[in-house]
Design a protein around this nucleic acid. Structure first.
Lengths: 200, 200
DNA sequence: ATATTTACTAACCATTTAGTTAAACCATAT
DNA sequence: ATATGGTTTAACTAAATGGTTAGTAAATAT
C-alpha cells in the first residue's frame, strides 16, 4: 500500500475498475475504495475522470501495441511469424485478461476519442506484413487469399476467444479451468491449423 | 408516432441508445428524447432502467439465438452446414450490426445478470454439432481437431470482425465501404478456407 | 350519463456522482 | 523549533440522473 507510489496505486485501482465496468460504469468512489484512498486524491493526481480514464487507456494500448507489432514487423518467415505471434499473443492475454475487452469496448463507446488518441500515438502498421503475404502468394508459397482477409482471420482466431470469453464459456458450458486449458492448447493448435490452411 | 404503439416506440428507442452507449452509459432522458415522449412513460411501461434494459437485451438475444442454432441443429452435412452458417450469419449481422457488440459488452459488464437470464431462457446447445464433428473425425472425413476448438475457430472467424469492426477499420486503415466489401467477400471465403483446413 | 381504466404530462423528489475546498499532516530544509 | 511545500483527509457543493407524484384527457365499461 505504501511500497508503491500513490499515483501508481490509483492507476492500478483505476485499471481494475475501468476494465470491469467501462468508462461510463466506473465510479470515482469505487476506484478510490479499490485504492484505499480518499476520493479527492484521484482529482489531485489526475484532474478528472476523463484524464484518469485516458491514462488507463493509454497504458493499456501501449501494452498491447508491441504485441501486435510482433506480427507486423518483418524479417522472419511467414510460418514462423504466425507461430510466434499466436503463442506469444495468447500468453500475453492470459497475463492481461482484461485488455482486449477493455479496448474493444471503449473503442465502440468512444470512437471519436480513441481515433484522436490513435493519431497522436503511433498505431501499429500492418502494411509490411500484408506486403510479405503478397510476396509469398506471388512466389507460390501460400494459397491465393486477399492478404487483409488472411490477417483478419489470424486476428480473429487469436483475439476473439478472449473478447467473447464469457459468451463462449456459457455457450459451451465449460469452466474457467477448462477455458484456460483450451487457450493453452490453442497456443500451438491455431498456428499449425492456420499454416496448414494457407499452405499450397 | 401513433402508427406504432408507444411501448414499441420506447423499445426501439431504447435499443438504439443502449446499443450505442451500453447499459451504464445510456440515460433515461436520452431514450425518452429518442422516442419523442415524456421520460415518465419509460417508467410507466417498463418499471425502471434495469427492466427496460432487460427487455432490450432479451429481444437482442432472442434474435441472435436462432442464428446460432442454424449451425448447432443437425441433419445436414458438416461442410454444407459451415457454408450455410457463415453466409447467413454474416448476412444477419450486416442487417443487425449492433448485436454482437452489444451482447458481448453487456455479457462482460453484467455477467451475473446474464447468467441468470440465460438459465431462464433456453440458450443454444452446441452438443449435437460437437458430436457430429466427432463422428466425422472418427469416420476419417475431417482432420483430428478437438471439436470445441473447431467450433471456437468457426465462431471466431465469423463473429470477431463485427465485434472488432472499429479496431479493424482503424488498424487496417480501411473505409466503411471497404469493410462492408470485405464482409461480403467473407461470406464465401471463410467457409471454403475453413472446410479446406479441416478436410483430409 | 357516470364511473373507471388507460395513456400521458409537467413538475418534483431523492439519490448519486463528479468535482471542490479548507484544513490537517508530515517530511525536510532552515 | 519552525517554516515550507507536497500530500492527504473530511466535509461540502452543484449538477446530473433515476424515479415518483398529482393531475388530465380520452377511451371504455357500467
Amino acid at each position: 500500500m505504501k511500497d508503491s507510489s500513490t499515483e501508481e496505486t490509483i492507476l492500478n485501482a483505476a485499471i481494475t475498475i475501468f476494465q470491469k465496468k467501462g468508462m461510463a460504469g466506473a465510479r470515482m468512489q469505487e476506484i478510490a475504495d479499490e485504492a484505499n484512498i480518499n476520493k479527492a486524491m484521484l482529482h489531485y493526481y489526475f484532474r478528472n475522470k476523463q484524464q484518469l480514464f485516458e491514462a488507463v487507456f493509454m497504458q493499456a494500448f501501449q501494452k498491447l501495441a508491441p504485441q501486435l507489432n510482433l506480427i507486423f514487423a518483418s524479417g522472419i518467415g511467414v510460418n514462423e511469424k504466425i507461430r510466434q505471434f499466436t503463442a506469444s499473443y495468447i500468453d500475453f492475454i492470459l497475463d492481461n485478461p482484461y485488455l482486449p475487452n477493455f479496448i474493444v469496448q471503449e473503442l465502440n463507446n468512444n470512437p471519436e476519442f480513441v481515433l484522436k488518441f490513435m493519431s497522436h500515438k503511433g498505431k501499429p502498421d500492418p502494411t509490411p506484413f500484408l506486403r510479405q503475404i503478397e510476396q509469398e502468394i506471388n512466389a507460390g508459397n501460400i494459397k491465393k487469399i486477399p492478404p487483409k482477409q488472411l490477417l483478419l482471420n489470424l486476428l480473429s482466431l487469436t483475439i476473439f476467444p478472449f473478447v467473447g470469453e464469457i459468451m463462449i464459456k456459457v455457450l459451451m458450458g465449460i469452466s474457467d479451468l477448462e477455458f484456460k486449458r483450451m487457450m493453452e492448447e490453442r497456443k500451438t493448435l491455431i498456428a499449425e491449423q492456420f499454416i496448414n490452411s494457407i499452405s499450397m
